[in-house]
Amino acid sequence: MSDTIQELYGRKGRNITDRDAQEITRVEELAYDLKISDVMTRDVKSLTPADTMRAVVALLRQNRISGAPVMEENSLVGVISQEDLMRALADDDRDAPIHKYMTRNVITVKSYEPVVKALETFARTRVGRLPVVDENENLVGMITKGDITRGVLTAIRRDYQEEEIRRYRASHLFEDIISDRTSLILRYKIKQGDFVNGGQASSHIKRALLRLGAPPQLARQCGIAVYEAEMNLIIHSTNGGVLRVQVEPHRILMQTSDDGPGIPDVKQALTPGWSTASPLARSMGFGAGMGLVNIQRCVDKMELDSTVGKGTKLLMEIHLRPDEKFKAPPGASETPSV
């Protein structure tokens, strides 16, 4: 996938603030998380090939839409759009059947694909609306860029509401995690050189895990790993980066990413004692060159992926053993909440 959402939406060349960056990454994430079926319009107005172009005018006008699928005996045979209608009007041919003007090579998207797939198709084909089909090629909906924007906005609003719920009702959340219903995502923007607040994100993460009922040993392992990773963003990155933690029923995924400077020799960086920390960082107690080694010791899987000039991604994963499952913190209600 070459284009990012940001590129598809044409933000190229514009200055992006910290805040934008955070929102964009969340939107990008949503474009992968949301399925086309989550945002598409299900109530599809369709026509048949034998209907006239007059019927197209009426349908588009009544429903304030710019196009419609053409169906013949439950199968999708074409789409008819405003542009097709223009051609008919130019020919003064309103009574012609739709099949004379419709587009037959229909580009479709699948309902179970992520929204980003529809965005790519819009960008590639320049069409404004796409029929959505299920795994059996049956038409199940239509999708436009407007549907996507609405869907993403709704999801972001839901995010904020969930944030509130997280804050005030953490006791209900662990139940969802136990019952495999939820994965909890925590994300933090980390500023380069911010030694004063350094570790705050990791501190939140550790506390959240304990509140969710994680065993102390597990919270400690995660805490140490994300703290070393957070400090590396503060000490070594050019513009800071993002720290993201995803708590799932059977594992915890932790990840940092930044956009530079990148590591020239990853193997060397992993050597115990190797450090390029600045004198300032060293005066603050960093630069032991043991951070990545410590992380490796705390997690089940670590992947360090870095390109000079592009940035660094550090993936850390802890698998939960059965006895490490999240347990109800004392005083939490017994019945799962919705």
Binding site: F195, V196, G198, G199, Q200, S202, S203, K206, P216, R220, G223, I224, Y227, M231, M284, G285, F286
Partner: peptide, 14 residues
Amino acid sequence: LCNPQVVRTAQMAD
């Protein structure tokens, strides 16, 4: 050392 990172480190490592 006497900076906030000492406390953060202590918190992470119990």
